[in-house]
Design a protein around this nucleic acid. Structure first.
Lengths: 208, 208
DNA sequence: CTCCATACTAAGCGGTTGCTTAGGCGTAAG
DNA sequence: CTTACGCCTAAGCAACCGCTTAGTATGGAG
């Protein structure tokens, strides 16, 4: 299965810094399983089997199944935040365009991680959720500031900045739900499409 | 808890045609639980307790826990399709505007049902999923046709109709994920906001 | 070689799961 | 009064869950 191998190669890219290798294999197996079946439908035996180890091996590297989820969610949120804020162009229009392109295409390319990040929040303990919510607020603030900067520069025509922020974020995040690697669009094409749609939504002068 | 009573009143509105009353109470309890905790994290004992009955009572009215989910998903999809296609205005711009307003605000007001509809598809059996996918395709086709009609009438400026359809649907559906009754926007305000944003996205001349 | 820490497995424990069985209770027809 | 039927519960079964325990293999330090 080629697509399955690609899948795991991409997950490996995201989690390459996790050591030791057995702990990384567990995380990758858990992310793949949580993404497809959901946290509650995934058993620790599933994860261990996918990682090629016994069920008890999970608990050598992680305190609980929930801690596995938390690590995926924490690193996933941090990664998506850094993807969003990596652009530092002076022009607010260019900055937002690049940010949306990168953020949307990340949710496609890394949809396995992104699905866990976006749709398994309710399975986290209150303490872990609180930690992740801090990152989510920073993601929202980053988008809002980029839109605000464009409005202040006279580049955008937005009557409701909070509402526009909500919509832009919502649009990008939902990519993780519907994206399929077998679909007709590549992550890059999705990024380009969404960057254009967002500029229109924000009333930026059309660049022909 | 006032908000909890409102919650159940709204669910009652959606499921009022289900008979007998005990079966309806089960459906409502299941929808509320699936929406908050997810299908797999909800036990048949949870559902029965919320409906004020014994665990075995579930199986008087439904063959399995999955059939409970299927009924919620099937009726929920059918309802959202009829909300989307209820508008029959001749003008394609008015038609799409009204449809988006209604579809987006439905995902807010009935977010409990909408969450089950949008996020628990993977828990359905293959047969039940296939039945629901037919409805999903009709929902997508309805939006695509409305956008196409606007393009044909020269009212929209859309380079990629399929892409625009994807984005419009995605935007509305994701309302179910982030909406909170305690939030700062009412379902109607969300509908108005989204109708405006979608018109901008589709390059419709701004109506001041 | 001994010692010990690390990484792992086989086996299993207590608790929970979806669902079944056997039977009770009320109502209405015969 | 008897019978039959629809709706419900008490009790429980087999399977499965997250996680623990006891023990094994490995490899490097002294």
């Amino acid at each position: 299965m080629t697509s399955s191998r690609d899948e795991f190669a991409l997950l490996d890219e995201t989690w390459s810094s996790v050591e030791p290798p057995a702990a990384r294999r567990m995380l990758i197996a858990a992310a793949a399983a949580f993404s497809v079946r959901g946290y509650h439908a995934t058993t620790t035996r599933d994860i261990a089997a996918q990682a090629g180890m016994s069920p008890a091996a999970v608990y050598i590297h992680y305190r609980s199944k929930e801690e596995l989820l938390f690590q995926i969610s924490r690193v996933g949120h941090a990664t998506s935040l850094s993807v969003l804020t990596a652009v530092s162009d002076a022009d607010p229009v260019v900055r937002l365009t690049s940010a949306v392109r990168a953020f949307a295409s990340w949710h496609a390319e890394f949809h396995t991680t992104a699905r866990v990040v976006q749709y398994e929040l309710t399975a986290l303990t209150p303490e872990h959720l609180a930690e992740v919510v801090v990152l989510r607020r920073r993601i929202e603030a980053a988008v809002r500031e980029m839109i605000s900067a464009g409005v202040d520069a006279g580049a955008f025509d937005v009557p409701d900045v909070r509402g526009a922020t909500l919509a832009v974020l919502s649009l990008c995040i939902d990519v993780a739900r519907w994206y399929q690697p077998s679909g007709r669009r590549t992550p890059e094409q999705i990024g380009d499409l969404y960057a254009d749609l967002v500029l229109r939504m924000l009333g930026a002068p059309t660049t022909p």
